[in-house]
Simulated assay, not measured.
Amino acid sequence: MSDENAEKLFLQEKPTRALLFIGSMGKTYASVISKEIDSTFAHTTRILAKMEQCGLIRFTFEGRIKFVELTEYGREVEAALKEFRDIIAEEPPEIQEEKSRETGVEKEEFTAGEEEKEPEQVEELDPLSAEILEKVKKLRSKIESIHREAVEQGDSKDTISRKLGPYSRDIKKLQNQIERAESPINEIVTSALNESEELLEMYLRN
């Protein structure tokens, strides 16, 4: 990876957070990363695509679920980023000495090296795409809520499968609606539905 590409990628907050999160999880998938770094799914996939091009991550499949994990090179970069993070988290000796001398004096807070978050373009959806996306969001929220409650209650795998199984039909209905649509449905909507399907399948398998 060239110095220029590295600078563009890791002097931004979200790519750095994404790589560190992938390293901490060992193996995860795009929608989870998207939530962790507070980014849209589309923006997250663009970040991951750049990381894959740089040889930092690789994608693997288990059934129909697409996972992402660090390569050996990615783990080396992760270690370097952690070291850098720890260094800048420490106060310079000069500041520590000044603080020890200025007891009771309110100091001005500052943050070094923090840059403005990368703006994300919000694409305007056509009415049908917006309607289906809202349905997908509600369905995903319901699936996550039921799974969370089931885990908290200590339900067995079979019980969780019985509770979540019917939602496969709801996903299929939305897929059919997209296929029958007279005009093309926005990619954001299809990606969101695919991620919801992958999430449900993971819940049903684990």
Rank of each mutant, 00 (worst) to 15 (best):
V151N: 01
L128D: 08
E94I: 03
E197F: 15
V122L: 12
R140I: 04
S161F: 12
R140Q: 14
S168R: 15
I171S: 08
E98K: 04
G165K: 14
S141P: 04
R169C: 06
L193K: 07
S168N: 13
R180S: 15
T190L: 03
Q177N: 13
L139A: 10
K163R: 14
R169Y: 12
V77Y: 05
V151A: 01
V77F: 02
S156C: 02
P119K: 12
E91L: 00
P93G: 00
S145A: 14
N176C: 09
E118G: 00
A192T: 07
F84N: 03
K163V: 02
E78R: 01
D155Q: 07
A181R: 08
Q121V: 13
L133D: 11
E98I: 06
A80P: 00
G104V: 00
A150F: 00
E90H: 01
G104A: 02
E98P: 00
E179R: 15
F110N: 12
E197P: 05
E123K: 11
A112E: 14
E120S: 09
I88C: 03
S156V: 03
E120P: 05
K107Y: 07
S196C: 15
Q177R: 15
G113T: 02
V122M: 07
I132G: 09
E179M: 11
E115P: 03
A130C: 07
S161A: 15
S145V: 07
R162Q: 15
A130V: 08
E108V: 15
E198K: 15
V136M: 10
E195P: 11
E198C: 09
T111K: 15
I87P: 02
Q175L: 11
E118T: 14
E106V: 13
Y167K: 12
K107W: 09
S141E: 14
I188Q: 12
E91D: 06
R162G: 09
G154K: 00
K138R: 13
E116G: 10
I160Q: 12
R180A: 15
A130M: 09
S145K: 08
K137N: 14
R140T: 08
G113P: 01
R180W: 05
E198T: 11
T111L: 15
Q121I: 14
E83T: 02
L125F: 09
D155V: 02
E115A: 12
N194W: 10
P166I: 10
V151Q: 05
T190K: 15
A150V: 00
V136Q: 10
I160H: 10
E83M: 04
T111C: 09
E182M: 02
L133T: 08
I185A: 08
E179F: 03
E152N: 01
V122H: 10
E131S: 09
L128F: 12
E98M: 12
L164P: 13
R75A: 04
R101Y: 02
N176G: 05
S183N: 14
I146V: 11
D155C: 13
K163G: 08
D126C: 03
V136E: 10
E187A: 14
H147N: 08
E198V: 05
K157H: 14
R75K: 03
E134I: 04
D126N: 08
A112R: 13
D86H: 04
E97N: 00
E106S: 13
K135T: 05
R85M: 07
R75P: 05
A80F: 03
A79C: 00
V189K: 05
Q121E: 14
L125E: 05
